[in-house]
Design a protein around this nucleic acid. Structure first.
Lengths: 248, 248
DNA sequence: TGGTTGGGTCCACACTATGAACCATGCGAT
DNA sequence: ATCGCATGGTTCATAGTGTGGACCCAACCA
């Protein structure tokens, strides 16, 4: 499942065997054998020419069958389109995946300078990035602690300037402010604003966010964008509760 | 992966442990352990109250990430909607999954009598059902033989009246006729018409189909519906080739 | 109260995954 | 032409992990 996930993260060009070995904690023969098993099951496929591994049809099939329960992107697609159109910047749907956030949908606006700091499939610990931070801040305190604890080592190692302590401070200001702001903390100059999305039972599902260069996120524009996000989020959330998808 | 698939097939109400044990060839402790592993990985989730198992968020995430490569339903959604609206009957998107066909999308028309012979998530051997038969007939002969051989035992056991020999005859007439017709072979009185969909490289991706009661599939209406299907299939196929999704 | 059904777990045992070492192939440089 | 070096892929003794019959428990119903 770790491998499946890595293949998913690898984007439209897929992943090579070597890349997967490097990204996983497994040895080459093991990776290869597991990939063969995934291929047999249809969850992964290998391009005959390039020898690279991609997600298989069965992933798509299972995903489609899981849509009635979890289909956030469908419910948010038009909201994201409106956000991108209205702002001219790039809009995203991010979803929670345990203690990480996955970017599932990206819609570019018309403005000529576009940040590519966040691409579809990318995963970061909760709190890293605007949408991701919005989700983290939306969690109940117990869960927040658990998530931060789980991510602690990865944060300190791979995300300098986003150590647990700083993250907690960010969460606090996010909660007061009402929306999450990423002031170029991951890629310098690439700013973002995000708001969380919840299922009708209150659990955090994902987030809507906007990204742009620093100059386009200064007051008073930042507040305007945040208002835009909040209104679209409300729209999406009513839709999420209407389709009474989830029993639990 | 077999279990994952079974959970997927089980529809929106999920599956109980006992059902999964029965449907799989595994023993109860094994099923339970594998399910726990799938739950750990986020591919499956268990409803705390009902104790039933459902597809998890990660299935949806992987499915979304696989959409650029395999996203048939998105490409066919509006065509299916038009089919259902124009015919008043129920329209389907089916996809190939090895030697089986999976129903991924179902759109009901306005007509008051609706067949529920095919529901989303249902899987049958290739050749069983209109869309499924359309796919089988669209395969090159070598592949057709392989598929029929693989399904032989299941066909004879579970689908009386659709033994390999009869299926081959059906394929022949389908190829001549240009579209697949299921004259109530699975559920008496429930008829269907289907046409195959191909990727731009010629490989069979899935099918579009319509289902209705027998009386609504008699000449000349059957031919009219087939024409409708063919034209929508053409639309979908041009869209499939435009998004040059697949390298291989 | 007693029987039945379904969910979930234990642990001796058998089988299966593991990875260091190895082979094969494609490609750029000399 | 030939070498060197990535990168993809495979082998096989060994360590370790999954397997399932038997069992427990709770809920439900007569």
């Amino acid at each position: 499942m770790m491998l499946l996930n890595l293949v998913g993260e690898s984007g439209p060009d897929g992943a090579s065997l070597a890349e997967l070995v490097a990204a996983s904690t497994l040895e080459k023969p093991t990776v290869r054998r597991l990939l063969m098993a995934l291929i047999r099951g249809g969850l992964v496929e290998q391009d005959d020419k390039t020898r690279r591994y991609h997600l298989g049809v069965d992933c798509y099939i299972l995903g489609t069958l899981a849509t009635p329960r979890h289909g956030l992107v469908d419910m948010a697609a038009d909201a994201v389109a409106r956000l991108a159109a209205a702002s001219g910047d790039t809009a995203f749907v991010t979803m929670r995946r345990g203690s990480a956030a996955v970017c599932l949908h990206r819609e570019e606006g018309a403005y000529q300078i576009r940040t590519h700091a966040l691409t579809v499939g990318a995963q970061h610990p909760l709190g890293v990035g605007a949408g991701s931070l919005a989700m983290l801040a939306a969690l109940p305190d117990a869960e927040l602690d658990a998530v931060i604890a789980e991510n602690a080592s990865r944060l300190s190692e791979s995300y300098p300037g986003l150590e647990p302590k700083i993250l907690r401070a960010e969460v606090a200001t996010t909660r007061v402010r009402g929306y999450a702001l990423n002031a170029g903390r991951i890629v310098a100059g690439s700013w973002g604003i995000g708001v969380a999305l919840r299922w009708s039972d209150g659990t955090v599902a994902g987030a809507l966010s906007l990204a742009a260069i620093e100059s386009r996120m200064q007051p008073p524009r930042d507040a305007e964008l945040a208002a835009l996000l909040a209104s679209e989020a409300a729209t999406v959330e009513t839709r999420m509760s209407r389709g009474l998808n989830r029993a639990n």
